[in-house]
Simulated assay, not measured.
Amino acid sequence: MSKAFTRETDASADEDEDVPSAPPIPAGSRNYITPAGYARLRGELLQLMNEERPKVVEIVHWAASNGDRSENGDYLYGKKRLREIDRRIRFLTKRLELAEVTDPSVHQGKDQVFFGACVRYAQADGQEREITILGIDEADSSRGQVSWIAPIARALLKSREGDVVRLQTPAGVQEIEVLAVTYPAPLA
């Protein structure tokens, strides 16, 4: 079929769907996030809207003015990048609208596990681990951070130092002992 008779669309059906980069927020739950996590998401949103998107729009405008768009790489890749930026802007906007900023430093000195806690625990085999419980959009497992909706976080929430909690895993139920609970210091 000749290209003259095909319809050029801005996005195919599978490209235009909002594909989140983080898991969905459980129904009826809040999107808890630390002040630092909120600032990072907001900074990314502003950077996309104020810097990156205008640059790409300028490139697409310049490429469109060059004529034939069907074989113009700057135009085609620019339009694709614009869709990606717009998708990320929509995602960040929705997440920030639902965000409930929670400062974990208010629990400084307490031994009970709440959102934002850094928890050191021992597994039944004696192996010790340390995790920090953060928001869905800010947790990074490579840095020992878990989302507050993760099974380990849900098992630990509301427990205290010295408590033994039961964690349901694919291998069965495990008992873990809470060894230490710390919180970040309040910002001055």
Score class of each variant (00 low, 15 high):
residue 1 M to S: 12
residue 2 S to D: 10
residue 5 F to N: 10
residue 6 T to S: 11
residue 8 E to K: 10
residue 13 A to Y: 10
residue 16 D to H: 01
residue 24 P to W: 02
residue 30 R to T: 09
residue 32 Y to L: 12
residue 32 Y to V: 03
residue 32 Y to K: 09
residue 33 I to A: 07
residue 41 L to R: 08
residue 42 R to I: 03
residue 43 G to Q: 02
residue 43 G to M: 02
residue 44 E to C: 04
residue 45 L to I: 08
residue 47 Q to P: 05
residue 48 L to S: 06
residue 49 M to A: 12
residue 49 M to Q: 15
residue 50 N to Y: 06
residue 50 N to F: 06
residue 53 R to G: 05
residue 53 R to W: 03
residue 55 K to C: 13
residue 56 V to N: 13
residue 62 W to H: 15
residue 68 D to S: 13
residue 70 S to M: 08
residue 73 G to T: 15
residue 77 Y to I: 11
residue 77 Y to L: 15
residue 77 Y to F: 15
residue 78 G to K: 11
residue 79 K to F: 07
residue 81 R to H: 10
residue 84 E to T: 07
residue 87 R to T: 04
residue 88 R to A: 02
residue 90 R to W: 00
residue 92 L to F: 01
residue 93 T to M: 03
residue 93 T to S: 05
residue 93 T to V: 01
residue 96 L to F: 06
residue 96 L to D: 09
residue 97 E to R: 08
residue 97 E to Y: 09
residue 97 E to M: 07
residue 101 V to R: 07
residue 104 P to E: 00
residue 104 P to D: 00
residue 106 V to N: 01
residue 107 H to N: 05
residue 109 G to I: 00
residue 111 D to F: 00
residue 111 D to R: 01
residue 112 Q to D: 03
residue 113 V to D: 00
residue 115 F to Q: 02
residue 117 A to R: 02
residue 121 Y to E: 05
residue 124 A to S: 11
residue 125 D to A: 07
residue 126 G to P: 08
residue 129 R to T: 06
residue 129 R to P: 08
residue 135 G to K: 04
residue 135 G to C: 08
residue 137 D to T: 05
residue 138 E to T: 14
residue 140 D to S: 06
residue 140 D to P: 08
residue 141 S to I: 01
residue 143 R to S: 10
residue 146 V to A: 01
residue 150 A to Y: 14
residue 150 A to T: 10
residue 150 A to S: 14
residue 151 P to D: 03
residue 152 I to G: 06
residue 153 A to Q: 08
residue 154 R to W: 00
residue 157 L to Y: 04
residue 157 L to C: 07
residue 158 K to W: 10
residue 161 E to V: 12
residue 166 R to E: 15
residue 175 E to T: 13
residue 177 E to C: 12
residue 179 L to E: 06
residue 180 A to Q: 15
residue 183 Y to N: 09
residue 185 A to S: 14
